[in-house]
Design a protein around this nucleic acid. Sequence first.
DNA 1: ATGAAAGCGCTAACAG
DNA 2: CTGTTAGCGCTTTCAT
Lengths: 377, 377
Amino acid sequence: VNIAKVAAEAGVGVGTVSRVLNGSPQVRDATRRRIVEVIDRLGYRPSHLAASLSLGATRAVAVLVPFLTRPSVVARLAGVLSVLDEEGYDSVVFNIETPEQRDRHLASVSTKHRADGVVVISIPLVRDQLAALEAANLPMVMLDADTSGAVRFVVDNVKGGRMATEHLLALGHRRIGFIGDDTGSGLSFTSSGRRLAGYRAALAAAGIGWCPEIVALGPHGAEDAARMATGLLSTGAPPTAICAASDTQAMGVLTAAERLGLAVPDDLSVIGFDDIDSAAMVRLSTVRQPLQDSGVLAARRLCDQLQGRPRRPARTVLPLELVARASTGAVDCRGRPPPTRRTVARTDRRRRSRSTRSNSTPAGAYSNNHPGPVQPA
Amino acid sequence: VNIAKVAAEAGVGVGTVSRVLNGSPQVRDATRRRIVEVIDRLGYRPSHLAASLSLGATRAVAVLVPFLTRPSVVARLAGVLSVLDEEGYDSVVFNIETPEQRDRHLASVSTKHRADGVVVISIPLVRDQLAALEAANLPMVMLDADTSGAVRFVVDNVKGGRMATEHLLALGHRRIGFIGDDTGSGLSFTSSGRRLAGYRAALAAAGIGWCPEIVALGPHGAEDAARMATGLLSTGAPPTAICAASDTQAMGVLTAAERLGLAVPDDLSVIGFDDIDSAAMVRLSTVRQPLQDSGVLAARRLCDQLQGRPRRPARTVLPLELVARASTGAVDCRGRPPPTRRTVARTDRRRRSRSTRSNSTPAGAYSNNHPGPVQPA
DNA sequence: ATGAAAGCGCTAACAG
DNA sequence: CTGTTAGCGCTTTCAT
């Protein structure tokens, strides 16, 4: 049951049926009604495929995302999907976990006209891939990856690492650890590395030397981060604060602190990066970057391109904002003792638990629930 | 630059080019090489669209998911995407947040041949929608929604609620609260409600009456759950344990406990549902259901249908498993005093923080990190 | 092994 | 306003 059958049954030409389908105003009302009736009666369903073929456009965009299960990625994706949906585009999403998948899907997208455009989240591309997209005449916008030559939305991760570190320095910390991603995924994410660079820069500017023994890089995952943090905190000269390359990893650090019996922020300050939803819940200090909104912007930009609307600059830097919550505090002025893993006596259990930290406001180092941005630099 | 141009340039017929494209063995090697060379030289890209039209199949499947940002949903989606990818299908994902979106996308999917099949995650459908899919000849499999007449993968949520509650009862709790979803989303999710039913059944079986004042239903979200939990715990006769309809909500309960200065599990036991990744991190006891795996199964089932392979039963019930971690413990035998919101004195800050709870193992109620299933019934 | 030709279902330009 | 027709780019018999 195709358009021809409908036309025949209604005693009109296919053109007219097509016009009805596409809401053209140039159809007499009586004719339209008759056609609609036939469509219903026959249970006719137009083929999006055939229409696309004829139109030369798919009304679909491909979305490449790495590690779909990471909260920050999902937030971005949600932003992207929401505007694509609004704009009437289908979203074909590819979850990328390995370089092979990246290459395969990128190739298939640019090679077999499946989509009118593509948005790439957090995955750096190489020149050849950009060229392939270009050659395929596929508009592309990148998000959270700074590949030159591409339209992209990024944050200044070096600055972000510096902001986090300077926040800790301002609180009096001098021995600050760092936990970030290694290069294990093979997708060459750069965020963690650049944040580390910012961390180093901030320390250097404060006249503090580089201590590799309190820097740990490993797989991106809370449990991995917890393991690494436990390592850092078990050295002879443990840090009084840890800067994590993501909130997920910062949560791991919090867990490690808890397991070691370290109070946060009294024994250890922890700062993350991203400001994912759960960060506010655990009152984690962090450097916020737009997640969902970055997706919205990127998708809008793509839609503009797809519709031939004017193009703004190719590289957009989104703002970062320090959010100080309860996981960072002034370093103990009395010169804190090395955190011997205190095995707390079994009495007075009540007071040892995840308890009133959130209610006390020591040293004015942090305030109530969502204090908003502080420490402008 | 289409297949005809390639054929012309190579001095062959389009049929032969097509054969090369599809790896047909019936092409002389010399011819094949010549064609491949031309394809490269011309930068020819076959049109998936045209192929689909010709073949009558899109090699794409539509995936409808509600509230993409929920971890349990993402886990399921990841499972679905992984097998669709393996099987060579594109995944067109629709994020559904309102009944209108559900209806619109469902209609568009079943109406405009965009996909060869559809998987629906957690969204109950009505008979008409099933019929529409049927009429469109679109195989569909549902995941985490028990709409009769559909191929579906579900868990027994009533039983799950009972398992959670019985675990708490076995630990000696008699006053057990419940926190779950209200019907606010309009998508009529049923999980929370059925878990509540299981909770009631378990209590009834233990001869414990129904106390509406320690049951709270509200929006699905950790902060909302925290608010509700605070309410429950502030009544004259607060519960000694709370059963949450999801891990996300259970996390909210943990936060509430922390804010109120209640020790977990000494003052309050908390159990969640799902076993999302972060549950293990915070040592949350929970009822585990297969998330990623359920997605894998559902997608495989759909692929089977798409490829006309044999069909197994229409309704598959996946297993549930109680995972006892550190957030549930035996009720205090000394008969615990009402949890007056203790405002802890400002001395001895160190001991008050998120601390050694994880290291102590009171009353043998829980053991080390991943104890696996316990409390079979 | 390969060329020719008939669709797949729709849109849009053109002619009335 | 509406019918006719020429593609859109590919796959697939059917001959050869």
